[in-house]
């Protein structure tokens, strides 16, 4: 079962078992990770599911699409090199993913 570790801006970590094929955003919303707002529900229209991915995990992810890249310019906390929108990250079998959530999404 894939696992996501969400670390908030204050440093507290929540570990959640995810379903293979679900997005990181869906995993967060269904498990009460409030640092992921995900207003639009995954249609790449709101940029409120922003996460910073642990450097060591970056190579395991599918590359970013053009629209995700554009929407990352609309995040509340400025993007960094390891920024992703968690609605675009699909959990794969056995994946162990570490992300940090920004101080605010809005």
């Amino acid at each position: 079962m894939p696992t996501v570790h969400f670390t908030d801006a204050a440093g507290a970590t929540t570990t959640i078992n995810a379903n293979t094929g679900d997005s990181v955003m869906e995993t967060a919303v269904r498990n009460g990770v409030t640092a992921i707002v995900a207003e639009c529900g995954g249609s790449l229209s709101c940029a409120t599911c922003h996460v910073f991915v642990a450097e060591s995990d970056l190579p395991t992810l599918e590359p970013m699409g053009e629209m995700e890249d554009e929407m990352l310019y609309g995040t509340a906390v400025d993007r960094e090199d390891n920024s992703r929108l968690s609605c675009q990250l699909r959990m794969t079998e056995g994946q162990d993913l570490h992300v940090t959530t920004p101080e605010t999404q809005v």
Binding site: E39, G41, G42, S43, S45, C46, T48
Partner: peptide, 16 residues
């Protein structure tokens, strides 16, 4: 922000 005034899902307001 959990309001539904922009809809939700695939048709979420493009101009929000």
């Amino acid at each position: 922000r959990e309001h539904l005034s922009f809809g939700f899902g695939i048709h979420y307001c493009l101009g929000n």
